[in-house]
């Protein structure tokens, strides 16, 4: 039971929920540390906080910048 498992949960139309990971590695080799028990990893590519989901998949309008 003490064996650690990384579990990925599919959220249709939304991100992947990841439990038990330490870091997420991008295609450019950059690593993002996992700081919470469950993280949401972006799948739509629209997030401003890659690799994390920022709910941009909900925002149907064009992205606004500060």
């Amino acid at each position: 039971m003490s064996e650690r498992r990384v579990v990925v949960t599919d959220c249709p139309g939304g991100p992947l929920l990841v439990r038990g990971a330490d870091e997420v590695v991008g295609v450019d080799g950059s690593t993002a540390r996992v700081e919470r028990a469950v993280v949401a990893v972006c799948r739509c590519g629209r997030s401003d906080r890659m690799p994390w989901c920022d709910d941009s998949h909900r925002d149907r309008r064009r992205k606004t910048k500060p």
Partner: peptide
């Protein structure tokens, strides 16, 4: 921003 994107999925699903 990040926390509630996770919580949304946890809460709904």
């Amino acid at each position: 921003v990040e926390a509630d994107a996770v919580h949304e999925q946890l809460a709904i699903r």
